[in-house]
Amino acid sequence: MQTPPETLTAVILAGGQGRRMGGRNKGWVEYRGRPLIEYAIERLRPQAAQLAISSNTDIDRYRALGFPVLTDSHPDYRGPLAGIAAAFAAFPDHEILCAPVDAPELPRDLERRLRQALEAGTAPAAIAHDGERLQPLFGLLRPVLADRLDRELARGALAVGRWFRDVGALTVDFSDQPRAFANINTPEDLQPSPPGP
């Protein structure tokens, strides 16, 4: 596997409000005997030179894992793009590879495939598509987006998919591994799948 460039930082987006999980921070929800944050670290850490966690709660608990914890600069919740903005602020001039904490089977080749698409053109970002729907929180963003993101977040929360469309992000086909994007949103999602017929 190729060594990731020093200016590539992976960020686990763990700052959601977890409303459908009763307000729990989803990174610490256990799935198959392990907290979701462990799956995210295991899969994302090898794909970048360094890793950080974006969260506004359980900060000390996340820091104990040995990675920087990034908090949003806005006092009100402005969505996952605020976590990406915090990553750009903490790692100036770095590319940001992001993924949400609640997808325990996220692609192990996420960075490689997104990069192949980016390097083929001049787009500022590449995001995943699972074959059925856009998965914009699985993305690779160039630092040229940092200032624009800050300016637009200053006006309020942004719709993630729309924002990536507006900045001209490329869409990368991951329809060969749609299960990689299955996320844990509710307590029901934590239950093992029933056996097939």
Rank of each mutant, 00 (worst) to 15 (best):
Arg148Val: 07
Ala169Trp: 04
Glu38Leu: 12
Ile59Met: 05
Gly66His: 13
Gly121Glu: 11
Glu132Arg: 15
Phe174Ser: 06
Ala86His: 05
Pro178Ile: 11
Phe164Gly: 01
Asp93Ser: 15
Asp176Ala: 13
Asn56Leu: 06
Ala87Lys: 00
Glu132Phe: 15
Tyr77Ala: 02
Gly161Asp: 15
Leu44Tyr: 07
Arg142Asn: 09
Arg32His: 11
Ala180Lys: 01
Glu111Leu: 03
Leu81Met: 14
Thr9Ser: 14
Asp147Met: 07
Trp28His: 05
Ser73Ala: 14
Val172Tyr: 04
Asp130Phe: 09
Asn183Pro: 05
Pro143Val: 14
Asp93Thr: 10
Arg61Ile: 13
Leu97Ala: 04
Gly27His: 03
Val11Met: 04
Ala52Asp: 05
Phe164Arg: 02
Ile59Lys: 05
Ala125Glu: 03
Ala90Tyr: 09
Leu153Glu: 02
Arg165Leu: 14
Pro4Gly: 10
Gln135Phe: 09
Glu188Leu: 09
Asp130Arg: 13
Pro187Val: 10
Ile184His: 00
Pro195Met: 08
Ile37Ser: 01
Ile84Gly: 00
Thr171Glu: 13
Asp109Pro: 08
Gly22Asp: 11
Ala87Tyr: 02
Arg20Ile: 01
Arg165Trp: 12
Val11His: 01
Trp163Phe: 09
Thr3Gln: 13
Ile184Trp: 00
Gln191Phe: 12
Arg45Ile: 04
Leu170Pro: 02
Asp176Trp: 08
